[in-house]
Nucleic acid binder design. Sequence first.
DNA 1: CCGACTATACTGTATATACAACCTTATACA
DNA 2: TGTATAAGGTTGTATATACAGTATAGTCGG
Lengths: 241, 241
Amino acid sequence: MTSPLYAQVKEHILEHIRSGAWTPGTRVPSENELVESFSISRMTANRALRELTADGFLSRVPGVGTFVKEPPARSSLLELRNIAEEIAARGHKHAAYIDRRETIEAPQALADEFELRQASKLFHLVMVHTENGVPVQLEDRYVNPFVAPKFNDQDFADITPTAYLVAAVPVDELEHTVEAIMPTVEQRELLDIGEHEPCLALHRRSWSKGHVVTVATLIYPASRYALYSRYKTSPSGTLSQ
Amino acid sequence: MTSPLYAQVKEHILEHIRSGAWTPGTRVPSENELVESFSISRMTANRALRELTADGFLSRVPGVGTFVKEPPARSSLLELRNIAEEIAARGHKHAAYIDRRETIEAPQALADEFELRQASKLFHLVMVHTENGVPVQLEDRYVNPFVAPKFNDQDFADITPTAYLVAAVPVDELEHTVEAIMPTVEQRELLDIGEHEPCLALHRRSWSKGHVVTVATLIYPASRYALYSRYKTSPSGTLSQ
DNA sequence: CCGACTATACTGTATATACAACCTTATACA
DNA sequence: TGTATAAGGTTGTATATACAGTATAGTCGG
């Protein structure tokens, strides 16, 4: 039931970072201080700090101390990350409001994207996600009502559309396209950005058991967001030419 | 000078995985076996195996053993693709010319990106890649001369910098950042694009055995390029939240 | 022949201890 | 005043030891 001691120490430190009590640059307790306050051995404190460093939350300087690292405003390209959790992980406040919500008859282009033989109804949702009150993502999403019929019953106050869909439907395939765009006037107003600011447009389709679940366009203002990924290459794997 | 013991054990195991001697599913030596063969303590062997597990190379089962993990499916978006081959695959003609080539003393920001403790020299290369005569990529690359000392001896007429580096240095870690930018006047002229056309900027760092090999910024005009990936999600894999 | 028990191997966690390397600060000395 | 030295705090690594939990193989008894 109880988690290991090193995990408790990690969680304790993460709580302080998430809550904003320890901002980037703040010095966190030294190993010896953790030894005293938690009544643990230094090796256990060392493991907690070392793992948080490997995870990118802390940085350590021999002979000086351990400090909270600046969280990069970045998103993983590989995962279906939930923007609300990403923002929370940076210790910031996420909020979202629904700009439009409707059920439409799919035009041909959309029906093709959904790989539907005949025209069908689709759920359509436009949301704006904010980080500390600043718009960071414009979400324009279509959902297949046959795969996620209850999607339109959600109010998305406590759960984002991505989080709901991941929980409701097992996704087994993903497609991403990333491009740079100049936003339309409407998009610009929703995101509250200047006239010549480019945006990243992340176009995502997800499949479940051969059916397209959702088609989403996520627009990020260039100045407020970048996509990020870092990973170890498989040692045996082919790193293509 | 010599690397820590746990790092030596990690490297030893990675060598076997990289060479193909230990394929996915293969059982790796237990902690006690490593204790004997390396004459180290079990805690040191434990650290090596635990870190390799955290990095995704191994999986451990209490009471059973430690095994080489199946490499995760990665998207083409994140592979080290070579633009010359990409263009050739589309049946088009690739050409490139060098705009600038120099050896510089790394300013602080670059030294940080290269994770260098003290200032050092770096190779710097600016190239323009064209597809059927149209510029499609502006490559602005810095290279660590300690890792790839012969990089500056190449003329890159027949081989792109990416292809040379992949062949010359075993890359074991990659980092990508993608953002939308408005190009500078110089970049605009090199790419021969209009005044208000945004670009995709793909920032890439690669590591080899803990050292940063190269830092490259690849700029693609929005109208001529988009990044794409499609992949199956690993069945057991954690699709976060 | 089958089930319960036992021995064994392996991983997971935790502690106490030790030494090295590094940095900052205070102190002593010229 | 300026410099060298010493002290103390901090991280980094390594060891020996201990105990818990889990899975497997083998043994014994019914």
